[in-house]
């Protein structure tokens, strides 16, 4: 649904040095997916999302949304294509001179819709975001969460197939953030909307995303389905998603990180391990999340005693389909 292919964008910093904000970025988001792009400040997230609707034209590479190669369109065609791509902003970007309804209707005026029809549609969409009763309020009279609801309503008014969201919740408090994320999730399911959202918070990804990409210094380091990435060895996303804390001092014992996902999360793996190999397993850390309706998590275990037994134990765990990473000692 959204495909970016080998996108490069270089800015010139005020002192004349080039800044490669996007360095050969390729990205794929499937229809109906909620896809998160995670990265730290300055990683190139905003640049990425702005190249997707060509608010920023990439130096090279192509962007295809909904089957249309945007980078190949004329100005007029591009404007028409943008009407099928909604965008919400971190600072809402609502017109202060218009009411909530007026802001929503802007999207419809641009699309050339007649006044009566605009009114009907703006009522409908403001109801959908839960602001039906505040239609005549000006942005200055609304709270941050309400403003973002107007922003979402405006983005969705012209019935786009894709919603782009640049840090839509980072100006909001945690509770409001949760309600806005749930709204996006609900609407996405209801309307079959494809969503690409930018965030620097793992919690946002955990709460609503099916897929995720990790961006750093203008490069995509990892991307894929959330559940898949979690069971990929060495995944940085998995490590961020399931933080296990620092390693203990010393180097006598073997330390393993075990990733559970899908069915394996329900099995009594640790007690089996202790019984079968007669090991006094200690749990150093654990982290469990619900991802896409399934449980997934990581556990860090410490195994005492002779290394030979550990090798068997690790093999046994792997035979059960668990992802085992040896952090220290063990296999060698």
């Amino acid at each position: 649904m959204i495909t970016a292919s080998h996108v490069v964008k270089t800015y010139t910093a005020p002192d004349g040095t080039p800044v490669r904000a996007l360095d050969d970025v390729s990205l794929n988001v499937d229809r109906g997916q909620i896809f998160g792009v995670l990265g730290q400040s300055g990683a190139g997230k905003s640049t990425l999302i702005r190249t997707l609707n060509l608010l920023e034209r990439p130096d090279s590479g192509t962007v295809t949304i909904n089957g249309e190669e945007l980078t190949a369109l004329s100005d007029n065609e591009l404007r028409a294509a943008r009407r099928r791509i909604g965008m919400v902003f971190q600072h809402f970007n609502l017109l202060g001179s218009r009411t909530a309804r007026g802001n929503v209707e802007l999207a419809l005026e641009v699309a050339g819709m007649a006044a009566a029809e605009r009114r009907r549609r703006s009522d409908e969409i403001l109801d959908l975001v839960g602001l039906g009763s505040r239609a005549e309020s000006y942005p200055a009279q609304l709270s941050g969460g309400q403003k973002q609801r107007v922003g979402i309503a405006r983005a969705l008014a012209a019935k786009p197939a894709v919603l782009l969201s640049d840090e839509a919740t980072s100006a909001l408090d945690p509770e409001t953030t949760a309600s806005i994320l749930d709204l996006i999730k609900g609407i996405s399911t209801e309307l079959g909307l494809t969503v690409l959202l930018i965030t620097h918070e793992m919690d946002v990804v955990k709460r609503i995303c099916d897929g995720v990409a990790l961006i750093e210094d203008g490069r995509i380091l990892e991307q894929g389905g959330l559940v898949d990435l979690v069971s990929t060895p060495g995944s940085r996303l998995a490590r961020q998603l399931f933080p296990l804390g620092p390693l203990p001092e010393g180097d006598a014992d073997t330390v393993l990180d075990i990733t559970f996902s899908g069915g394996s999360a329900d099995r009594p793996v640790i007690s089996q391990l202790a019984r079968r190999y007669d090991l006094d397993v200690s749990i150093l850390g654990a982290s469990i999340e619900h991802l896409g309706g399934k449980q997934a998590g990581r556990t860090r275990l410490e195994l005492p005693g002779p290394a030979a037994i550990h090798r068997d134990a690790i093999a046994g765990l792997r035979a059960q389909g668990l992802l085992v990473e040896v952090v220290r000692g063990g296999a060698e």
Binding site: N53, L55, A80, A81, R83, M87, N93, L106, R154, A158
Partner: peptide, 11 residues
């Protein structure tokens, strides 16, 4: 940002 919002709507 308001101009960008307009552009993102296809204005």
């Amino acid at each position: 940002g308001l101009i960008e919002a307009g552009q993102s709507l296809g204005a």
